[in-house]
Every structure is written in structure tokens, then in C-alpha cells.
Design a protein around this nucleic acid. Sequence first.
DNA 1: ACCCCCTGTCATAGG
DNA 2: CACCTATGACAGGGG
Length: 688
Amino acid sequence: MKYLKPWWSDGGGLLHLTILLSLAGLRVDLDLDLYLLLPPRTWLQDELLLPGGSTSPAYAFSHFPASGGWGRAEPLHPKGREWDPAAPPEGQLLREIRALGVPFIPRTRVDAWLVHSVAAGDGDGAHALLGAAAASSSGGVGASVDGVSQAAPGGGGDPRASPSSPLAAEEEEEKTPAEPTAQVSDAGSHASEENEVLRTVEHGSQHEENEQRASAQKEKSLQQENEDENKTAERPAWEAEKTTESRNERYQNGTDTSLSLEDLFQLLSSQPEDLLEGISLGDIPLPGSINDGMNSPTHDFSQAVSQDVNLHEAMFLCPDNTFRRDPAARTSQSQEPYLQLNSNVNPEQPFPGTNLTGLLPLDSQIRNLTRQDFLFDLDINIFDEINLMSLATEGSFDPMEVSQLFEEPDSDSGLSLDSRLNSTSVTKTNSSYSLCEGATGYSSDLESLSQHDLEGAVGGYYAEPSKLCHTDHGSVSHFHEDLALQHLIHNHTYHIPRSAPESNPESFSWPGKSQKLRSRYHDRERNLSRDERRAKALHIPFSVDEIVRMPVDSFNSMLSRNYLTDLQLSVIRDIRRRGKNKVAAQNCRKRKLDVLFNLEDDVYNLKAKKETLQREQAQCHKAINIMKQKLHDLYHDVFSRLRDDEGRPVNPSQYALRCSHDGSVLIVPKELVTSRHKKQNQKGKRKH
DNA sequence: ACCCCCTGTCATAGG
DNA sequence: CACCTATGACAGGGG
């Protein structure tokens, strides 16, 4: 059993294949380990993601709704076997296919191989698939699969019916004049089937029903095809051959509607030379139009293949995202979503059916994340409101103080709770530090989203500063707005709930994240409440977050406009100093880790470079040794032919060959050569 | 009990 | 000189 290189990884190929098979009424038993190049790398086996989150055992490749393209999945070889390193020669293959007078333009290797199989009478499966292959080509599956950048006409309806379609025009050229109508109708019917199947793929929840419908239409189209074949006896020989009994049996009787992947591989792994046995370019006259079509840029097969959109293009060319997958750039900010999206795959995810979020496109992940987190935060907020007073049971908080915090008009509501929360405004990722934006370490929106998810797992709470951190001081009102805006834009709070979860553990289960985070949160809550408690005890009418974040001018004016005792001023300045230093320390640590990661990357790159240089050095040594050997052989060959005046052979140990500047070769006694060498060495030493 | 990691805080240097 | 930032060092807590 040979396995081909995963040529379908060029983009959409596997989907194309499955569509072909589905059109043929065949059930595909995919036994592939698919992994998507999405973070997190999630493995699927025997279950493939469909747009909309449902899965199907038959259709591969995930669709990216935002980009409108089909993402590239890289299927591993089945059963962990090695791929045949020999790749199918696609260019030659296409030429030969076209030379066959195929009435459709193969747009993928799948088409091409199927046509080859049929043309060469290779295997029942190929025969069975031909109709589907023709349909796929005529319907422009490639364009549909590509979704984005396919140059060939695609889209809805029947693109091939349009006379303006270059592909259709070429197909018209290639058709046998005796049966244009049959071909058009044939193609059209297949195109409709294909569209049906494509819709099936796009609506995974209904795909079984649609599959049945497609199968029904398949049978209809096949019957139509048979009728057409009966009508047109002057069809090309290859096309007459394709309607074999085996295919009809498979199609119409449905006795063998299951095509295992191994069968499929066997079918497709046949070399085109084998498939084209007896059918070579020399045997078949090359229509000029075909060659022209071949050379035309519109229908260049390799171009058509290369225009398939792979996952990278679908993902990373999406204007909405700036994600990178460069592992070397792991410390860069743009890759932060990976780390944090990784945390979305949560075994305890509270939303059943979304456990495949890791496979969803990133932007949809983020959308889901946003919705889920929003709802989750709503729950948390409600929960926090309900358990607000439970704070009093923890730490040193006095119930009266807590109540006063939200009742006293003079007491800033954010002082001891929300401001405390805000005072912990630092960016943290679950697995590593993230690069900060600018010098302040504010996280990006995406990071906040993901972080939100993470911190939602520990009971996230999103304080609304405009509501919770308000003060009556006009001098800082604009700062409040700015602060609120910063919270909206750079949400890097810890989202600490106001209630103590352990005070009501049964009412709320911590979703997802580990106990470690929870305990750290409690630890943080206890430790960081020191300044809050101080401020509260001194009735400082500002939140810690305000105190820390406020620009120095606003801070000074705020202090000057309020009558504050020396103790209050001292505590406020301490809070500000500590808060700023805390953020600075966090940024410093992030930078340190960043430097560390970069150094690791440098080490890795330098090691790779060293290995390359060592290989080159070994090659150079080898070449030098070869040249030395050649020179030695030549030397002795020359001496073997030399004779002295008496006709005796010249002893190479006594004489040496010297090449003069004019190209002549002299025989010089070795003593003379050595003495010259000594002199030259002495001269060189003197110069130095 | 020990180690490791994370985080906050302090002291200090430098801008 | 005041302020801010960066960073090393230390402490404390949790796993």
C-alpha cells in the first residue's frame, strides 16, 4: 500500500475529494488524523469539523466564515504510515489529461487522477468516480473550495452555464461537436449536485439529509448520463469506456457504496504513468486548442492548483486578524491570542458543544469567546451582587465598612473594592508573560478577551470604572473618563469577584482553571487589600486605581483640592509608589522573559547555522581530498610517462613537477624545490 | 520540610 | 529636585 504525499494539503483538496465521493454516492470512511494548524493543535480522528461547529465523518476541512475561505488542514497519513515521497507530476499529468480530450478541465489533481483512472480503465472506483469528477470540475469545485482567491469562475448557481466563463468557453472548445447539448446538460446537472453538496458541507447539521438528497440527485444525474451516453454514440473512446458495468452497479445498485480510505488511496496512489498505460501523448493527437488552453494563463493547471487557499492564507490573510504562527515570534504580542485561546479548550467548559472551539477559526473563536465571556461575566456580576456582603466574612473587612463603601456618598465606591480590583490592573497570561503595549504593559483587546476567558474561569469580574470609581472631584473627572476608556480598551484587570467564592462554594463552581489560580487570586486579594484597607481606614476619597494611574498633574491637583492630613498624603503617595512599582516590576519581568525567549531562539538558530556550516565544511574537505587524490594520480601518471636521457623512468621521489607562469611544466629536482621553499619561507618571515 | 514559581514590595540607579 | 522607570533583591504564599 503506497501513500501519496498529502497533496490535498495544498488547500481544499480533501474537501474536493470528499465532495467527489459524495457526488458519486459513495460513503467515505475517512480514517485520518487531522490536525489543523490552529492553536491549539487539536487532533481529530474520524471526526471532521463542519462549519457551524458540527462534525461529520465525511467532510474534511474547516471553513472559515470570516475569511470565506477553506482552511488548510494537514491530514496525516492514515495509520501512521509513511507517505510515498514521490509526488505526482501534476504538470505532465494535466497535459496528458487534456490530450485525452477530456470534456472538462481538471482543476485539481483529484480530478486529473480520476480522469486518468477512467481513461486507462483503471479500477472500478475510478469509473465510479468519473461522473462525480466531471461534475466537480464542471461546477468549479475548486473555485468553491478556494472560496477566496480562485481565479476560475465560481460562486453560486451554475457558473459553467455562463458563456462568459472562460472555463466554460474552453470546455466548449474541447467538446465534441456532435454532442454539445448533452455535455452542457450533463455538466449543469452535476454542477447543481455539486452545489447541493457544497451546501451540505456548509450546513453540517443537515448534511445527512442533504447527502440523501444528493444521492437521489446523483442517481437521477447518472440515469441522465446513461441516457446521454446512449444518445451519443460518437463520444470519444475514453468517455465510452467510462460507463462500465462496475460503475453502473456501484451507482445504481448501491451495492458498494462504501469506499474505504485505503481503496481511495490505492486508487489515487497509482502513478499516472500506470494509469495512462497505453495512452501516451504520442498515441493521441494533441488538439491545438487544448495546447492553447494549456498555455493560457486562465487554465493553467498548476496555477489552478496553486491558487487553492491554504489555511495560512485563509487565516492570516484575513484582514480581521493579525495572528501569526511564527514560532520564533512567540514572544511577540501578536501571538498572544494563541496562548490564551489555548486556554479556551477547557475540559470543564460550561458550554457544551463548544468543546471544539480550538478548531474554530480564530475570529469565530473570539466571537464565541466574546459572547460566552459576556454571558459569563453577566453571571459573575449577578453572582457578585448577590454575594456582595459575603466579602465581610473574609479577611479583615468589616461588614459595616463594606456596606458603607456602597452607601456613603462621600466614600468612593471603588476605593476598597473596585479600586482595589483596579489596583491590581496588570496584564497576566496563563502560560507566560505577554508583551506589553508601550511601556505600561497594557494588554491588547485580544489579550483582554482571552485573558478575560481565563480570568472568567477564576470567577472573572469586570469592574466598570465609570460606575464604580466615580468621585465628586471635578479636577479628576476627565481622568475618570479616561480611566473608563482605558478599561474598555485595555482591560487588564484581574476581574476579581467581589464575593468570596469559598463563602458560597456550592453556589458557584469555578469553571475551568486550576485551583492554583483561585488560590492565587485569594492570596492576591488578601495581600493587595492592604492599601485598600489603609485607604479605607483613613477615609481617603480616591480609589487606589485612581491614585496609581492618575497623571502627576492631576494627582497633584487632586491632592491640593482636597484637604488631606499628612498621614493621608503619605499613604496616598505610598499607594501610588507601590502601585507604579508593581506595574513596573511586572513589565520588567515580562521583558526579562522576552529576552530569555529571544535568547533561546537565537541559540536554536545559531545551532542550526552551526550544523549547516559544519556540513559545508565536511563537503569542502571531501572536495579537497578528491582534488588531492586527482592531483596525486595525475602526478604519478605524468611521471610514469617521463623518461630521462637514457630512457629510464624518472623517480618521482627525486624530482617534482613545477608549473611555470607560461603554462609549461618543468621537471625540477626536489632538492632545488625544497631549497626554494626554504628561501621563500625566510623571505616571508622577514616581511612579517 | 524543601524547592520552585509567582507576585508584591523595597531600595536604588538612572533618565 | 521631584518624579518616573527599570531592575535586583527579598519575602511571602501556594503547589
